[in-house]
Amino acid sequence: MTTIAAARMEWIKLRSLRSTWWTLAVTVAGTVGIGLAVGLNSKDAAADLTNNALAGVVPGLLLTGVLGVLTMTSEYSSGTIRATLAVVPRRGVVLAAKAAVFGVVTLIVGEVAAFTAFLAAATTVRHGITAPALSDPGVLRAVMLSGAAFCLIGLLGLGLGAIIRHSAAAVGVLVAGVYVVVQVIGFFAHSAAAYMPILILENSLSTTRPVTCGASCPDFLSAWAGLGMLSLYAVIALVAGGWLLARRDA
């Protein structure tokens, strides 16, 4: 009962900020816009059009990730966290309720973005290319798992927000972890590259067929292993954030 009430509180808090809806709207619009551009400009019939149609997921993730960070850190910067903890003194419940509400919202929005981006590309392809269909092998899986990535990176951001508590620092760590580290890893530790969030998205989740580029590529994770890896990152951040939240003064 108390957990359900805590989730209702978090839902009201999330939906009552205009910035939530603006961020989610831009996430969908950006992802779909890129899908549309891919559809209109595709000329290579041999390419994985589904993977290309989902290219907008990469920048889109940044928005749900940052929204996740801010969902937590704005409570600290505004002082709302003390009101929140006065309502729900069991701190693990607070973070669990936040994660559940935020996770469901970003999963729905992420799936809408991914499916709409795919359909935008599939319905606008020209140049005699055959449009991919959701019933084609691996396509439905690629679109669904890409949509789920919005939710998982969002939850990673939420966990980082709980760990770090300051907006700018937490956003910095998120961007570094998701977008920057991969550049460095790519040079120095080739086999680890397969575990980087962005490469998991591009080469494991959003592909309809295994990515191979010879000796210059690491062995990428399968789609489901990639999903598990991203989930693990989110879980680690949330568990660490919850542990710290319960331990620290508010």
């Binding site: 805590a6 009101a83 729900v88």
Partner: peptide, 20 residues
């Protein structure tokens, strides 16, 4: 000021009320 500047007074109170 233990409330988010972007949220209305009514929504702030509604959230706290729902939580308990």
């Amino acid at each position: 000021k233990a409330f988010h500047p972007g949220r209305s007074a009514r929504s702030h109170l509604a959230a706290l009320a729902a939580g308990n």
